[in-house]
Every structure is written in C-alpha cells, then in structure tokens.
Amino acid sequence: MDNELLEKGHRFPPVSIVLDEAGVSQYLEAVEDAALPALCRDEGRAWAPPMAVAALALRGLMEAMGLPPGAVHGSQEFEFRRPVAVGERLASRAWVAHRSQRSGWLALAVEMEATDEAGEAVLAGRASVLIPQ
C-alpha cells in the first residue's frame, strides 16, 4: 500500500468498467437475485444490477488503493442516478475525501462517481474503509 495515494484529496486514475451479459449472469447467480430479472422481463429491458455496477466501481478503486489483506469496509453510500444497460461502458473516478487515524486503524473515506460515455453521472458513492496499521 502506497500511503501517498491515500492522502486526502488524492484522485485515483479513472477506471473503465463494463458489465457484459456473461458478467451480469454470473453476478445474478452469485447473489441469487430473482427480482432484477423479473423487472427486466416486465420492462423488456436488459438492466445491469445496480450493486454490480457499484461493485465493479469499488473493485477498480480497491485495486488502485492497493489495500492490504485485513482492510475492512466500514460503511457505504450509493445513489443510482439512472439504470445502466447491460454492455454499457462507464468510467469510474474516485478521490480520497477524508483520512484519519484511530486505535491502530487508518480510516479513509473515498468518494466515487461513475459516468456514461456522454459524461453524465449514473452512480455516485462514498465508501469508508478501515486499514489495520
């Protein structure tokens, strides 16, 4: 883990994310989600699971942060601005919004935003992460 990457205000490089049909199927099977496929059948659309989009955005962020084993996810906020279609290409950006130390843990708050190819935000979020020191 590079501590310089985790200073308040640091902006991580954008990460490209796309959820294709196979990835969505794998995700829905893993989380046993029956509600989204039913909604998609009702609406005649192919939406990506909102938490799958969020998970991919988070994965890119966690990889960029280089978190050590034992890091813990403390809290999470998401706002889903609009549905994301299967196969849609997004860019996820994240930055360190807060950093503090307490009781042997480094506490970070990281804010993120995923945008579509037109630059419109489809997802916004804030994650708090505790890292053992």
């Binding site: 939406w47 909102p50 998401f78």
Partner: peptide
C-alpha cells in the same frame, strides 16, 4: 434503479 439511494 433510477434515483434510489442507500446509506449503509
């Protein structure tokens, strides 16, 4: 999916 918010 369109405008939902969650704080957990």
């Amino acid at each position: 999916l369109s405008g939902g918010r969650l704080k957990a």
